[in-house]
Nucleic acid binder design. Structure first.
Length: 313
DNA sequence: ATGTCCCAGTCTCTGGGA
């Protein structure tokens, strides 16, 4: 069983790329983030044509999470079960997300279901923008809500996977240059502690558990050729309870999906294989990835810290 | 390199978010 997660940066704009990747990677379950669609606009038919059911939780213009599965979808939960979120497609304008209006619990950032015997949770954590800002405080509060949901609605003994865009690089090895990112969001001690609180509950970083090498990322800024320089961050994760983690036999980030035309998302898909390695896993998903990472390790000699720091989705 | 991409509305450009 192959479980993937992918921040697609608009499912509408990325539909062709997503269809290509479903055919390429043959995932059984895909957790999607930043669909940027209202539920009424979710593309159920193309997924159905590819053999997948689609569970979508969106608000319109921003955010939006989904689960695509070809092994069934049961017991859906949206937004931690806290009720409907704001419709960001209607009346959106300047001030819509002004600081005083920001409420991460009023945005479509969580959807869950049971697929093929595994409860999966697709999450899109708030970005945080600037350390110390109300958006950053809201990000930390959102992570606390996620942890509380685990405490109240889940059990560390069950088969569960939380995947998505956490907007947190858990360790310095998860950032292209820790000095460049220092002082910014995604790497602050508080954000890493919020991530750690999820592990503490009973989850394992399924990718890192199997793949210790540095220099492998899931997000690269569109600008400045950052992807080709491998200036990225590992901020998308698949966290698994022990019942799932012990079954993980492979983990990969598919950098090929971050390349070429039509224009890709700024995130690459990440996936894990349970019990049986996928047919394509041994073919190599990007033979250049290791070479780039090795070159980057040498490049980590003196470099000026970048000014504004990274901004990721 | 302030370097790109996506969205909706003010709609062939702009502003906001990542």
């Amino acid at each position: 069983m192959r479980i993937a997660t992918w921040n697609v940066n608009s499912l509408k704009a990325r539909l062709e790329k997503v269809e290509w990747w479903l055919e390429r990677a043959q995932p059984d379950v895909v957790l999607l983030q930043e669909t940027k669609l209202a539920d009424d606009d979710a593309p159920h038919l193309p997924f159905r044509m590819a053999g997948y059911e689609l569970l979508h939780h969106g608000e319109g213009r921003w955010n939006g999470v989904a689960i695509a599965s070809r092994v069934g979808i049961a017991d859906p939960v949206a937004n931690f079960g806290d009720g409907p979120v704001r419709d960001s497609s209607a009346g959106a304008g300047s001030g819509e997300t002004a600081e005083e209006d920001f409420d991460p619990f009023d945005e479509a950032r969580m959807v869950s279901a049971t697929c093929g015997g595994v409860r999966v949770v697709s999450i899109y954590a708030p970005n945080g923008r600037v350390v110390g800002s109300p958006f950053y405080t809201g990000k930390l509060a959102w992570f606390a809500r996620l942890r509380r949901w685990l405490d109240e609605a889940a059990d560390p003994g069950e088969a569960l996977v939380i995947g998505g865009d956490f907007n947190v690089a858990p360790a310095d090895d998860d950032v292209w240059d820790p000095r460049a990112a220092h002082g910014g969001t995604h790497v602050s001690p508080e954000e890493r502690a919020a991530f750690g609180a999820l592990l503490e509950w009973g989850l394992t970083d399924a990718y890192r558990g199997l793949r210790p090498e540095p220099g492998r990322y899931t997000w690269w800024d569109y600008r400045a050729g950052n992807f080709h320089k491998n200036y990225g961050m590992r901020i998308d994760h698949l966290l698994a309870t022990a019942a799932v983690a012990r079954r993980v036999v492979a983990a990969e980030i598919d950098r090929e999906a971050r390349k070429g035309k039509p224009v890709p998302s700024d995130h690459a898909p990440l996936f894990i294989d349970l019990d049986t390695p996928g047919e394509l896993i041994d073919a190599g998903w990007d033979s250049a990835a290791g070479r780039i990472a090795a070159r980057q390790a040498k490049d980590l000699a003196p470099r000026q810290a970048a000014g504004p720091g990274p901004r990721s989705g």
